[in-house]
């Protein structure tokens, strides 16, 4: 087929009616503490990987909680599991555990 360079833009909205919330619900059941995130961003500010790549741990796990899984596994792969974020999280979330859990649950979304 001839490509004219046109395509249909995907709607940008997070559609919570269409998103499959099952995985996100399972993640939150396994680690309910993730729900206590107050989006302070100190994990991202201190992140070793975030200092040299576009990786934003807070944003990725927030997207996952909204049922937006695409690309989350690849993003979490940028984490080097240094654990600095866990030292800074004011809610005491096991942030490194969150990285591992999301990777485990989203393996098939690669």
């Amino acid at each position: 087929m001839v490509q004219f360079g046109y395509n249909i833009s995907q709607p940008r909205a997070i559609n919570m009616d269409k998103n499959d919330m099952m995985i996100s619900q399972k993640i939150l059941r396994t680690m309910p503490e993730l729900q206590t995130c107050i989006a302070c961003g100190s994990c991202t500010a201190t992140c070793t990987a975030g200092a040299i790549t576009s990786f934003n741990f807070r944003k990725v796990h927030t997207l996952v909680r909204r049922g937006e899984y695409k690309g989350a596994y690849e993003e979490m792969n940028k984490c080097m599991l240094c654990g600095k974020c866990r030292l800074s999280c004011p809610r005491g979330i096991n942030t490194r555990g969150v990285v591992m859990l999301i990777k485990q649950e989203l393996g098939e979304y690669r």
């Binding site: 940008r12 909205a13 997070i14 559609n15 919570m16 009616d17 989006a39 807070r58 944003k59 927030t62 997207l63 909204r66 937006e68």
Partner: peptide
């Protein structure tokens, strides 16, 4: 309802 998830920076909708 429609809102922006301002911590993500994308619009969001749900019923």
């Amino acid at each position: 309802i429609k809102a922006e998830d301002t911590l993500i920076g994308r619009p969001l909708k749900m019923t």
